[in-house]
Write a protein that binds this DNA or RNA. Structure first.
Lengths: 194, 194
DNA sequence: ACCGTAAGAGAACGTTCGTTTTCGAGAATA
DNA sequence: TATTCTCGAAAACGAACGTTCTCTTACGGT
C-alpha cells in the first residue's frame, strides 16, 4: 500500500512538474508552484525528489519515454512501410495542433540549461538520438537508403521549432511534403550532381 | 563626443550581453555579470538600458540584424541563383563549426522566455519571418516554386537545433543534400502522388 | 488511555537577483 | 578657493527561490 501510494504521489508530482516545466520553462517554475499544483507538501516532495535538479531530470526522462511511445503507437496504426514513415509527420501535426503546444521540451530545456547542466544536455542528446534511431528503422523498413534518415530528422526537428514559433501546425504538412519527395527520389535511386 | 562615447558604451554592454546571454542562457546571466564583463558600472548600465528586459530585447534585435546581414553577405559571394540558395547551408556549416556554437539564439530565447514574455516571442517570430522572406527571395531567384521555401526553412531550422544538440556541424551538409534534391525535383516539375 | 511517530502546513533561512541608493573622489564653474 | 555637479564603486533593498526546520495534529501499537 505504502509503495502504491508513493507511486501515485510521484506521478502526481511529475504530472504537475511536466505541465509547469513544459508550459512555462523550467527556471520560471519554483518548487512552491509544483507543491501547489500537485498538492504534495514540500517535505514529501523533497523525500521523493531530493532536489529540483533531480525532479527536472525525472521530468525529462519520463517525457522522453512517453513521447517516443506515443509516436510509435500512432505509427503502428499504419501497415505500409512508406505510410509508416510519413505517418510521423501526421502525428507531429496532431501534436502541433494541441492548444498548449510550445515546441519540443528537449530543445527548450537544452536551450535553457544545456550550457550549464551536463545532465540536461545529455538527456536532450539521448532523446534526439533515440528519435533518430526510430526514424532510421522506419527508413530502412521503407527500403530507403540510410542517408534519408538524416534528412527526415532535419525536417521533423525544423517543423517542431517552426510550428512553435509561428504558432501554426502547418510546418508538419510542409515537412511531410518534403519527406515524400525525398523518399520518392531515394527510391528512384537518382544520383546526379548540381 | 558624449554621444560617441555613449554609443561605444552601449556597444560594449551589448557585446558583453550577447556573449553571456547566448553562451549561458538569458536567465542564468545576472546584471552583475554583464557589469563585470563590460566594465560599465551598474548606474550607467541602467541609464542606457532601464531594465534587464530592455537589454534582452536590444540584444535580440541587434543579433537579428547582424545574423541576417552576415548570411546575406556570404550568399552574395555567389552568382548562380541555384548556388546562392545552397550557399545558405554552407554558411550554416561555418556557423555550426564555431567552437561556442550553441544553437539559434532566437529558438533558445523563445524556449526560455517565449511563454512569459510576449516581447521575446514577437522578436523570435519576426526573426524567423525575416529569415523565411530572405529564403523566399533566393528560391524565387532560382526559379523554383514558392512551396520550396517552406521546405528549405524546415531543413535550415532542423539543422540548427540538431547541430546544437549533437555538437556536430554535419547537419548542415545533410540539409544541403536534401535541399539540392528538393530543388532539382522542383525544377523538374514533378507532380505525382504517393 | 498513553506514548511515540509520522505527516502536513507553512514559517524560516540563506542565497541570488534586479534595481536603487549611498558615498566619496574628481572635474567644472563662479 | 569654494561649490556644485558628475560619475564610478559598491553597499543596500526587496523580492523570489531552493531547501530546511518547526509546530501542530492525528494515528498506531500496547
Amino acid at each position: 500500500m505504502i509503495e502504491v501510494e508513493l507511486e501515485t504521489t510521484e506521478q502526481r508530482i511529475l504530472d504537475a512538474a511536466e505541465e509547469l516545466f513544459y508550459g512555462q520553462g523550467i527556471q520560471l517554475v519554483g518548487m512552491d508552484a509544483i507543491r501547489t499544483a500537485s498538492g504534495v507538501p514540500l517535505k514529501r516532495l523533497y523525500q521523493i525528489f531530493p532536489s529540483k535538479n533531480s525532479l527536472v531530470e525525472a521530468y525529462l526522462k519520463r517525457r522522453d519515454a512517453r513521447w517516443l511511445h506515443d509516436l510509435a503507437q500512432y505509427v503502428d496504426s499504419y501497415d505500409s512501410p512508406t505510410q509508416r514513415m510519413l505517418a510521423v509527420f501526421d502525428w507531429l501535426f496532431l501534436w502541433f495542433s494541441e492548444p498548449d503546444y510550445r515546441g519540443c521540451g528537449f530543445i527548450n530545456s537544452f536551450g535553457e540549461l544545456g550550457a550549464t547542466s551536463q545532465a540536461v544536455a545529455d538527456i536532450a542528446k539521448a532523446h534526439k538520438d533515440a528519435f533518430r534511431r526510430y526514424l532510421a528503422d522506419l527508413v530502412a523498413a521503407a527500403d530507403a537508403p540510410t542517408w534519408l534518415t538524416d534528412q527526415v530528422v532535419l525536417l521533423a526537428e525544423g517543423a517542431m521549432t517552426t510550428a512553435a514559433i509561428s504558432g501554426s501546425p502547418e510546418p508538419a504538412r510542409h515537412a511531410k511534403d518534403a519527406a515524400r519527395i525525398l523518399l520518392r527520389t531515394a527510391h528512384a535511386g537518382v544520383v546526379t550532381a548540381v
